[in-house]
Design a binder for these strands. Sequence first.
DNA 1: CATGAATGAGGTTTCATTCAT
DNA 2: TATGAATGAAACCTCATTCAT
Lengths: 211, 211, 211, 211
Amino acid sequence: MRTATANTFQPRKTPIQKRSTVTVEAIAETTIQVLLAVGLDRLTTTRVAERAGVSVGTLYQYYPNKQALLYAVLEVHGAKLAEAVENACRACRGTAVKVLVSAVVEAFVNAKLARTDISTALYAAASEPEGAEVVRRVSKRAHRALTAALAEAASATMGEMDFVALMLYSAMAGATRAVLEAGAPAKMVVRLREELLVLCQEYAAKSVQSN
Amino acid sequence: MRTATANTFQPRKTPIQKRSTVTVEAIAETTIQVLLAVGLDRLTTTRVAERAGVSVGTLYQYYPNKQALLYAVLEVHGAKLAEAVENACRACRGTAVKVLVSAVVEAFVNAKLARTDISTALYAAASEPEGAEVVRRVSKRAHRALTAALAEAASATMGEMDFVALMLYSAMAGATRAVLEAGAPAKMVVRLREELLVLCQEYAAKSVQSN
Amino acid sequence: MRTATANTFQPRKTPIQKRSTVTVEAIAETTIQVLLAVGLDRLTTTRVAERAGVSVGTLYQYYPNKQALLYAVLEVHGAKLAEAVENACRACRGTAVKVLVSAVVEAFVNAKLARTDISTALYAAASEPEGAEVVRRVSKRAHRALTAALAEAASATMGEMDFVALMLYSAMAGATRAVLEAGAPAKMVVRLREELLVLCQEYAAKSVQSN
Amino acid sequence: MRTATANTFQPRKTPIQKRSTVTVEAIAETTIQVLLAVGLDRLTTTRVAERAGVSVGTLYQYYPNKQALLYAVLEVHGAKLAEAVENACRACRGTAVKVLVSAVVEAFVNAKLARTDISTALYAAASEPEGAEVVRRVSKRAHRALTAALAEAASATMGEMDFVALMLYSAMAGATRAVLEAGAPAKMVVRLREELLVLCQEYAAKSVQSN
DNA sequence: CATGAATGAGGTTTCATTCAT
DNA sequence: TATGAATGAAACCTCATTCAT
């Protein structure tokens, strides 16, 4: 990744025809595969194009630069994650903290484990500046939604719940990451769901009451 | 016409004269600063050497390649972290789970926040394959120590405590990371200590009793 | 942060478009010219690319590394030489030793002097390990063909002719090299043909009869 | 071997004290060992110094630059070879061509095989410009001596014997080189002495009579 | 639109040589 | 004198990006 020259990460053109959409998707998907196969610092635009079955030129028709590639992939996945958390929060309006936390944990774990390959690949992609930025944005969305939901459920102010939400979110992220990096074997995933639930429930119970 | 390069990350030579010791330290320290200043993918050996006030040649006398630089820095920091956790565990032999967890959380947070610049910089370095490996090794050490200590304190088997320890460690890591990435302002650090303690205590209490 | 490089000397890609074929040829030819102009240890990939009128990047599209450049050139020339000797041997099946030797000497000298610039340049290239390997292979082919041909012509075993063939081949090589390194002026070349013929004929006559 | 800056190949100072002489010799000898062990393009001044048990600084006290090292080694060996041929010629004044040729062949082969390791190592060293120059000078001396001796023995002019001498010398060189590069096993060496004698005798006999 | 050859800045690494200790 | 740390020019090679076909 050379020093930035142009600086738009948005796909260069909105694909209208079907052919293009397919191509765009194929490139994005290949990016993930390459990321997993060879790692971030051997992910080259040529290699991605090659494995995607198109030429580099074509790749550059849809993604203005290499960063845009990673950005696009992260963005899609990140959006899903943020939405999952937001939806869970929205669906639990009016419920008890316990229910809320349970729904959020489940939504988070599901979203992360839906495609373990993508999730794992993205830990690498997130180390680039733009990657980090996407992660920050996603975290902020999830954090905000969670803060608001907790405040409502606990009849507390958002200020009171802000840090609690951060703890919950970052603990979920940390634990899930640990499991993913261990290869996410079925048994661990089962335990993760159970234990993460306990961890978050207990913490929320204690934290909320004390506020 | 170059030929095969050795591929070890181990320092190339042990400094004999005093000035070289200084040089080695300066390079390591500068690596962190550069990592923070420009990020991993603009960290070049030339840049590090320049800012450290030595020539590239000198850098390569002590670090056989770029990876070794990052590796060295991570290794030192990682070792401290692992030791901190191990020491806390050792110091709490015979105490209650509550005391143990409290000590571990404190040790972990202290180690991580001792130099926030280093800790923050290393999240980037950890994304490279070798970096990831160091992180894995450190996590394993901490995880193992914690598992054993919990098993002893709770009169449980290590198998029973294995996943519990993983949850505790990864939650600590996740939460601390979130705070570091937010810039680790004093207020947040205070809250982190409080809340992380609560989170770990509650979880441990619940988890241990159920086993 | 680079990572492992492939270590083959084989051309990297087969040119598809016409212009690239031209490029590949130009680079190979330029390599010889540079070898002659500045010598092996000042032959740099940059210099070759420059004189060939292409960028370094282009050079590396077709030759994976510097050694491959030299290797390619040597290989082509070496193959011609080996074939020349083999063809001469084949063409002389059933003839007397005298005829055979005469044909081989002529074939060898012709092949070597066809392009004195290349032959001269390659003495330098042959000093690198890979170069030496090509030379070994070529010598082996020529030696083998000559051994077999001599054995047939002299009704002797190959074992008996093995060393004789080696002497003949290495004497031809030595004498021709001496002339090439003297600049291969016309007069010397004429003498070389005459004298080498005598030398080889006489030796063969004596050697073969005594076996 | 970087581009030449200073250009003297002569040892920097004539060692007077015994200690220095030993050092100088050790370095020269080590150079040969390193040449054999790792090849010309991994022969570094540091490596030579290291294996010789001295510091680079010391090496540079006796040899002004890297080329001087190789030059010195080649020079010593080359001088021996030239002298061997010259001595053989001188010792055979007044003898028949047959005797002369026999003596020269023996002298040449003995000189070359006295230390096969050195001879082999020097083929590599001879590819550098300065190396080539030494080889040229040595060949010229041997060639000149042989030409004169042949002229006298055959009652011919030096002009008539010039090319004959070249053929003899280059054939000897070629054949001996082939044997050295094959590892110079005892059996081959025996054959070399026999066959080279035949080859040179026969050629000389024929060539001399025809002049 | 697609292709893939060409570009060249820039990164990593080596090693001959110097000079303070 | 001997040492070995430091230097830095220069070599090799990669890869994001462009553009003629």
